[in-house]
Design a protein around this nucleic acid. Structure first.
Lengths: 193, 193
DNA sequence: GGGTTTCTATCTACTTATAGGTAGGTAGGG
DNA sequence: CCCTACCTACCTATAAGTAGATAGAAACCC
């Protein structure tokens, strides 16, 4: 399969499989079969499963940073946070969960090096949400009695949990409920009637 | 090891291992080793891994029903919902995640029969929270502009997500943030200063 | 330019460990 | 004597990884 870059294909596919089936349920065999090469050839690109997982996670972290840069251009804190939630909805629509949530579920079985990008992904997301909420409160865009950290810290687990649960039940309604509750607690009324 | 009931020991241990390491990362070998018997003997009690998982999940669902019955005795909706959140905190303190959340993460790799107890667990939890919130709103114990279903539906994913993320980061603070946000959105002030 | 070497990406073939499961035997208690 | 709860011994499939070969492209040297 002469695609642009085999390594990238492997990263893409591995990421998809981890987001769909979980880290422990994906194997070099599946991966190799899907791109049409042998498992030994996958080892040529990534010496071990741990390394592959690490590279996938690092890239995912980079992609987050890129999103955050893009969203910085948006005109309001509301728009920024909606975009953030929107990215989770995109993931949901693919029948997947967040790579980071998937990894976090399996955290006890992962080797140490991958812990740090997972950690950074969560830290960075939370930090960013806190900033948005804080800025919105200061500018008067939001209104809340709770400390911004509390509000912000509750968003991330909600979104992760919503993705995980939505595949067994509820379809998109969980994510919608989470979104509405969150924005309501910031004093932002729902845009739809 | 002459404990009361080997079958119960196996269920207990399997449940713990699934909640700590995930369904796909636990094996009959680990399980057998921990109770001090051979894997073939585990098969005597449970014909297959799928059956064991199913029985563990069914029992977990029964335990939920028992909790809900106990909590029915509590004097207020606030107390009931605090008890609900408290049960998640207990799980967190064990370094584990909810069995149902763990199963949900691996849902794509589980065979069909186990889907229904997982589904029922989520349905039942959500339904119960909705009832509490609704009753509290009607009695004036709670105050909110959002529909009770929306508020209630956002609690479960939040708690599940908080448990999953808390093992990689944040300790107990995520669960606390989720709890405070939830009760704040019901107009209940935090009890601690 | 021709010849040689080196690099890239893959292969076949193999190893070791584990996973889930089966068949059939057995010790000891009711 | 039969049932319960184990056991040993085995099987088949898969997982992750290694060793060594190879075809073809690229680079290197004179």
């Amino acid at each position: 399969m002469p695609t642009v870059d085999r390594r990238t294909d492997l990263l893409d596919l591995a990421q998809g499989m981890i987001q769909e089936r979980g880290y422990n349920a994906f194997s070099f065999k599946d991966l190799a079969a899907r791109v049409g090469i042998k498992t030994a050839s996958v080892h040529y690109h990534f010496p071990s499963k741990g390394e592959l997982g690490l590279q996938v996670m690092k890239r995912y972290l980079d992609q987050l940073e890129e999103c955050l840069r893009t969203w910085a251009e948006l005109p309001s804190e509301t728009a920024r946070l909606r975009a953030f939630v929107g990215s989770y909805r995109d993931t949901e629509n693919q029948g997947a969960i967040c790579l980071c949530g998937s990894m976090a579920s399996d955290i006890q079985t992962l080797n140490a090096p991958i812990h740090s990008p997972i950690n950074r992904y969560l830290e960075r997301s939370e930090q960013w949400v806190v900033q948005c909420v804080q800025a919105g409160l200061e500018s008067g865009e939001f209104l809340s009695t709770l400390p911004p950290e509390t509000l912000a810290m509750s968003l991330l687990p909600s979104l992760q949990g919503a993705l995980i649960l939505s595949r067994v039940q509820g379809g998109g309604t969980l994510l919608t409920a989470v979104e509405q509750s969150f924005f309501a607690s910031l004093g932002v009324l729902d845009e739809r009637p």
